[in-house]
Design a binder for these strands. Structure first.
Length: 422
RNA sequence: GUGGCUGUAGUUCAGUUGGUAGAGCACAGGAUUGUGGUUCCUGGGGUCGCGGGUUCAAGCCCCGUCAGCCACCCCA
């Protein structure tokens, strides 16, 4: 290993790339089915974009960003998540304006300088959805349903949808104050992390895994009791729409997403088969973000999920990844005289859309036959001296063992054999 | 950023009380003239993650380093 791969990154090798293609195209299909269109933004942006959107106190910005300066000293960062760039583009390009929604999907690599672990990488691949321009609770439910349909269509079983509402700024501020006054008397019993959280982001305290903190947090006030009437109503409607769509969920008032821009609805699809990194897909509303990024005030909601985790759970649950791509036909070329007609026929069949291959380095007939077998192709086309003399090609079906000579000039007939598998 | 475990052929691993490496699978070739998937035979491949140290001698011991895994943390 002269040049080891960077820590926390991985290669997607040819033998498994069809699995990635499968999941990617399934996600594309589903998003397009909901009338969402693809948006692709740069994988690096000005550092401030992430600092302002994701939030200065978030771990992502504080310690997980890949930052660099370009030759003119401008500060950039590799994107740690997708929403910031999409919102930036929306503002730049006026993608949503009074009453017209922006309905967008994206996929691509994200970067976070974290310690690698199961289901956690430094360069990882996300797919995501953003719907910007509506505050209608049905949109919340629709966005959630895209995630639901995706996981279901992939064949996953052991996952659960958890939803919560974080309310708006006012609710959130009141709730934070309530948390602070609740936890302050317990200061002596809280862990160091939680003491910090208490000052910077009290909601995170609800998530602590230290048992003493957990016990204290168990009796903490519930966010849902701090929602304004409107926000309460919004949350109820989201639930109602989910029920109409037959999407099961549970309410988890402890969902606190790690990015600061979330408001109102927050949700996660979690699985029990991934160990500790169990979030398959997470998202929520961000009704202040567009304005914060310099656009006109506009509500939005979205989610993002990680491809790696999907793959892992699918492997574990034995889900299908579609068909492994195989050549339709394998060429066996025996003897020098056969080369010229073989190459001509090969080219003509490929132009007709047939996937075929050969290995000019294999010399003996038997070696080529073995290679044909291993390739997985159903058909083998054989051209040797006999065939050249008779101007034919031998077509062999590798499953049945039947074979037949066809005139080498009848490429349509040859193609038909292969395409119709007859 | 912290802690624990691990690091030997392409791969999965073995390697005895320290004496300079082995197996299965995979791969390649062959078992009489142009026919694969079973079987049999043969073969190619490893500076034992990297760098130091102890020792007459280290894959085995010690230190460092890098990487992987798991957990903390955080989240996709």
């Amino acid at each position: 290993m002269k040049y080891p791969i960077p820590r926390g990154t991985f290669d997607i090798l040819p033998e498994s790339s069809y699995k990635w293609n499968y999941i990617e195209s399934l996600f594309k299909d589903i998003a397009e089915r909901y009338n969402y269109r693809r948006i692709t933004t740069p994988i690096f942006e000005r550092t401030e974009l992430f600092e302002r959107s994701v939030g200065n106190t978030s771990d992502i910005v504080e310690k997980e960003m890949y930052k660099f300066q370009d030759k003119k000293g401008r500060n950039f960062a590799l994107r740690p998540e997708g929403t910031a760039g999409v919102v930036r583009s929306l503002v730049d390009n006026a993608l949503a304006s009074q009453g017209s929604l922006a309905m967008l999907w994206y996929m691509g690599p994200m970067f976070r300088y974290d310690r690698p672990q199961k289901g956690r990488y430094r360069q990882f691949y996300q797919y995501g959805i953003e719907n910007i321009g509506s505050h209608h609770p049905f949109i919340d439910a629709e966005v959630i349903s895209i995630g639901w349909v995706l996981l279901k269509t992939l064949g996953l079983k052991g996952f659960e949808l958890q939803i919560n509402s974080l309310g708006d700024d006012t609710d959130s501020a009141v709730y934070d104050a309530a948390l602070i006054s609740y936890f302050t008397p317990y200061k002596k019993s809280l862990c160091q992390d939680c003491l910090n959280r208490l000052e910077r982001n009290p909601k995170r305290l609800l998530d602590c895994k230290v048992s003493t903190c957990k016990e204290i947090a168990a009796q903490a006030p519930n966010i849902l009791e701090f929602l304004s009437d409107d926000n309460q109503q919004h949350f109820h409607l989201v639930q109602r729409y989910l029920k109409l769509m037959n999407i099961p969920f549970i309410i988890n008032p402890r969902i606190v997403r790690g990015l600061d821009y979330y408001t109102h609805t927050a949700f996660e699809f979690v699985t029990d088969s991934l160990g500790t990194q169990n979030t398959l897909l997470g998202g929520g509303r961000y009704n202040k973000l567009v304005e914060q990024m310099g656009g006109k005030p506009m509500p939005g909601i979205g989610f993002a999920g990680g491809f790696e985790r999907l793959m892992m759970v699918m492997e574990q649950e034995g889900c299908s990844f579609g068909k492994k791509p195989l050549p339709q036909a394998y060429f066996i070329v025996a003897g020098d005289v056969a080369q010229e007609p073989a190459i001509k026929l090969m080219q003509s069949l490929r132009e007709q859309g047939i996937a075929l291959t050969w290995n000019p380095d294999k010399i003996s007939f038997k070696a080529q036959m073995k290679s044909a077998d291993k390739s997985g192709a159903t058909w083998t086309l054989i051209i040797g001296e006999d065939e050249v003399a008779a101007s034919t090609v031998t077509i062999r079906n590798m499953e049945t063992g039947k074979q037949q000579a066809v005139s080498i000039s009848d490429t349509d007939i040859i193609a038909e054999y292969i395409l119709n598998n007859k």
